[in-house]
Every structure is written in C-alpha cells, then in structure tokens.
Nucleic acid binder design. Structure first.
Length: 259
DNA sequence: ATGGTTGTTGGACAA
C-alpha cells in the first residue's frame, strides 16, 4: 500500500499537476495540505473520476487539508482536539479501508518567531502530542502525515546557520517534534535513509531556491509501531517541483507491506 | 542587495 503526502499550495491552481501525479504515481492514499479553498470548491469530480474517495476540511483563502483514498474513508475528526476555539483547517483524520487510521495535517508555520504565530505553532504541537498519545493508546495502525513545518535536524536544511532562528528550525520546534516521535512513532524517510543528504521536500519560490537546491525537509510521514514494521520503502518525488507553475513542496511517499 | 516569488484577492497577508 502506497501512502503519500503533498502540500499543493492551492488545489485549484495545482489541479493539472495533481491529477497528473495521481495518474503516474498511483498512490493508494494521498494526503493534501494548503488547499486554500472551501470544501465546495474542491475539484471533487476530477479526483473521484480517478478512482479516489475524498475527505476535505476546507477554509477560505488559507490552510485546508484532505485525504484521497482508493479504499473507503470514514472521517473521524475534522479538527485537532485541545482548543475548540481554533478555527483553522489544519487537521483531518479518518479510517481508510476499515483497518488503518491516517491523518493529514498542516502544522502552523510559526514565523515570525518569536511572536504570536510562533506561540500558536508551539501550542498546536503540544495539542498534537497529546492527541497522538491517545491514538497510540489504541491498537489501530496509524500514519500521521503532512506538512509539519519542522526541519528536524541541521542535516535537513541547506544552510543550517542561516535558518537557525527560523520557526522551522528553532530548537523549540525541533524539541517538540522529537517529543512527538519519541511517543513511539517512526519517521519513515529518516528510518530508511539515515545518511541521506540534500533530501528536501520544500524549496522556496524566491531567490532561485529550486535551481540552487536550497531546500528543507519539512514534510513527514510518522508511523505507529504496527506500520513501522511494515515499512518497505519511502522516498521524495522531486519531479513535480520541476514542472511549470509548481507547488513549492513536492510529494513524499512510503510503501507499506501487506499487513 | 532590507532584495526575491506565488496564491488569494482585489490591499495585504501568509508562506
């Protein structure tokens, strides 16, 4: 079973590359972030015609997440627990095929840091840790995937010193990401590629970041122990970043052996 | 070098 995640930076602006990638990569499940539209504007017909069921949590202009799946989807949550007053569309969680739980998450960027946005990011991460703990208490195989907006180590950014004060690389962000993983998750890419360098999932639009390979690895797939045992492959598909009018992120995917 | 780009939206904000 192939499960992927992709921050598309507007699903409407990225419709052609999205459909092209579904056709070529053929993921069984695709987690999307930064839809930048309400649910009614999601290109449901086009995606469903490719054989995918769709669960969308949208928002006007900003954020927005979705789960696309060839197997039936049962939505479990449309908000991250822990703050009922938080209106931002950054979480959708569902059972797929009745045996696997997946969540598509869009963790707050947090810049500028320090400041209110950074405080919101850290609070959101603490909510994520608390909820992830409850998910691990159950016995359902679980994958938490998406744009974490956290670059875990200096090996995951082209210029560690230049990014040290950024919300994606700050020690507070990295510490909470480690706290999440240490609950018992396996970060799929690094588990299979411990020494990989220049393995990025995001390149800024500005200053020629893509042709210079000035990237960061901030999109991640976290696996519960039952799924870590089944992890057969994981990689980053850089091709979509090189197309015309690309997203600034590119897909990451993993292959899980039959359980 | 206080720059540079994209998307939504129709000026400013987020990334």
């Amino acid at each position: 079973m192939k499960i992927a995640s992709w921050n598309v930076n507007s699903v409407k602006a990225r419709l052609a590359p999205l459909l092209g990638w579904l056709d070529s990569a053929k993921p069984d499940v695709l987690l999307l972030q930064e839809l930048k539209c309400v649910e009614a504007d999601f290109p449901r017909i086009e995606v469903e015609s490719r054989g995918y069921r769709v669960a969308v949590v949208g928002q006007k202009t900003y954020n927005g997440v979705a789960i696309l799946s060839r197997l039936p989807i049962e939505v479990a949550r449309e908000r991250l627990p822990g703050d009922e007053s938080d209106p931002q569309a950054r979480w959708v969680e569902a059972m797929v095929g009745g045996r696997l739980r997946v969540a598509s998450l869009y963790l707050p960027n947090g810049n500028p840091a320090p400041g209110e946005k950074f405080d919101y990011k850290l609070a959101w991460m603490r909510r994520l840790i608390a909820h992830a703990r409850t998910l691990l208490d159950g016995d359902t195989p679980t994958l938490l995937g998406g744009d974490y907006n956290v670059c875990p180590t200096d090996a995951d950014v082209y210029d560690p010193e230049g990014w040290r004060a950024d919300a994606l690389c700050r020690p507070e962000s990295r510490a909470l990401f480690r706290e999440l993983v240490y609950l018992g998750f396996t970060e799929a890419f690094r588990a299979l590629h411990p020494d990989a360098k220049s393995a990025y999932t995001f390149w800024d639009y500005q200053a020629g970041a893509w042709p210079r390979d000035h990237g960061l690895r901030i999109d991640h797939l976290l696996l519960s122990p039952q799924l870590a045992d089944r992890l057969a492959a994981c990689d980053i598909d850089k091709d979509p970043r090189g197309l015309d009018k690309p997203s600034d992120h590119t897909p990451i995917w993993c292959e899980l052996a039959d359980g």
